[in-house]
Amino acid sequence: MLTSNGYVLDERRVGELSVVPERERGELHGLRERLRRDGYLYLTGLLDAEVVQGFREYYFGLTGAAADRPSYRKVLFDQIVPGPEYAAFCAQPALKGWFEWFLGGEPFLHKRKIIRQTAPGENGIGTATQAHYDLVYLRGGSDQVLSAWIPLGDCPVSRGGLTYLEGSHHRVLAEEAAGTLKRPAASMTADLPGLAVQYNANWLVTDYAAGDVVIHTAHTIHAALDNVSTEMRLSTDIRYQFADDAIDGRWQNHWHDQDGL
């Protein structure tokens, strides 16, 4: 049984995230077409798993010593988020180089980069990332910004990985173009089962492994599942775009959960 913020997903509206086959990884035109078609690219093993695990150990090595919530927040926002280790991880050649190749020019990494931690058993409203598409938070720049969601360690479905609403970007694009989708800079809903019915679409899930990366467009609806495992779920989401395109200036400061974005 899969849940998100306590809502139980209808198993009849759950599908499998599609992996980009190894033979297609080097076909630039095909990858761009696949992204336009599916709204995401699931690239297994794009990163070195040992590099990912090393950053996970670095993170928990610092936060594990924080005995209370205020101490944890201080470590997260004063040390980890602005720290050189996180910066290096997000700009590692396997990531930045891929975006340079895919975009066909100099890539720009938004300074506001987010780390999400979910403990086992957390399942109240607001615990898991609610359904949204990224453009509602990034309207000050290009709508061609791409997000990279990276599990920091293995993340099976039970640990609460990201889930994508199949084909949702096509409807979002159409409604954005028509001006009929006027949403504030906020999540759409915590009710993933209801949204699946509204869009007549499946929520796509998979068991992620350390080294996997999912690239998705700014129009693709996604959310997170509840962590029903016994292990901590840790991930980061970062955003790259073509450096010559318009850039949202609000995203050029380090992330803080009180920054209003």
Score class of each variant (00 low, 15 high):
residue 127 T to G: 14
residue 170 H to A: 02
residue 162 L to R: 09
residue 215 I to A: 04
residue 137 Y to K: 14
residue 152 L to Q: 14
residue 162 L to I: 15
residue 210 A to F: 00
residue 241 Q to R: 07
residue 155 C to K: 01
residue 218 A to I: 14
residue 238 I to W: 05
residue 154 D to S: 07
residue 247 I to W: 03
residue 151 P to A: 10
residue 130 Q to P: 04
residue 208 Y to L: 07
residue 253 N to V: 15
residue 239 R to T: 13
residue 123 N to M: 15
residue 242 F to G: 02
residue 195 L to W: 03
residue 127 T to P: 05
residue 230 T to W: 06
residue 159 R to V: 07
residue 233 R to T: 01
residue 185 A to C: 11
residue 164 Y to P: 05
residue 147 S to A: 14
residue 204 L to V: 01
residue 135 L to I: 03
residue 251 W to V: 04
residue 191 D to W: 06
residue 215 I to R: 10
residue 205 V to I: 13
residue 236 T to W: 08
residue 118 T to E: 02
residue 117 Q to N: 08
residue 181 L to R: 12
residue 141 G to P: 04
residue 232 M to C: 05
residue 151 P to I: 08
residue 239 R to S: 14
residue 151 P to T: 09
residue 248 D to L: 04
residue 170 H to L: 08
residue 191 D to Q: 09
residue 248 D to A: 15
residue 166 E to N: 13
residue 250 R to M: 12
residue 142 S to L: 10
residue 211 G to Q: 06
residue 184 P to V: 03
residue 128 A to F: 04
residue 200 N to L: 08
residue 119 A to N: 08
residue 229 S to E: 07
residue 174 A to Y: 07
residue 221 I to A: 02
residue 146 L to P: 12
residue 255 W to L: 00
residue 225 L to R: 02
residue 148 A to Q: 11
residue 142 S to W: 09
residue 115 I to T: 01
residue 129 T to M: 07
residue 144 Q to K: 15
residue 145 V to Y: 03
residue 194 G to W: 00
residue 163 T to P: 07
residue 178 A to F: 10
residue 244 D to I: 08
residue 180 T to Y: 14
residue 255 W to C: 05
residue 206 T to E: 12
residue 116 R to D: 08
residue 253 N to R: 15
residue 193 P to E: 02
residue 157 V to R: 15
residue 230 T to M: 14
residue 198 Q to W: 01
residue 153 G to E: 11
residue 166 E to P: 07
residue 152 L to G: 12
residue 194 G to K: 01
residue 130 Q to K: 05
residue 142 S to N: 02
residue 191 D to V: 06
residue 206 T to F: 07
residue 121 G to H: 00
residue 123 N to K: 14
residue 207 D to W: 04
residue 118 T to A: 09
residue 216 H to Y: 13
residue 253 N to I: 13
residue 236 T to Y: 07
residue 112 R to C: 03
residue 249 G to M: 11
residue 155 C to R: 03
residue 234 L to H: 12
residue 252 Q to R: 12
residue 219 H to G: 07
residue 161 G to F: 06
residue 113 K to R: 13
residue 196 A to L: 04
residue 246 A to C: 05
residue 183 R to S: 11
residue 115 I to H: 10
residue 217 T to F: 14
residue 135 L to P: 00
residue 229 S to I: 06
residue 252 Q to Y: 11
residue 168 S to Y: 00
residue 198 Q to K: 03
residue 131 A to P: 01
residue 188 M to H: 00
residue 179 G to N: 12
residue 243 A to T: 08
residue 247 I to K: 09
residue 188 M to V: 02
residue 167 G to W: 03
residue 168 S to W: 02
residue 159 R to N: 04
residue 247 I to Y: 12
residue 151 P to R: 06
residue 229 S to P: 03
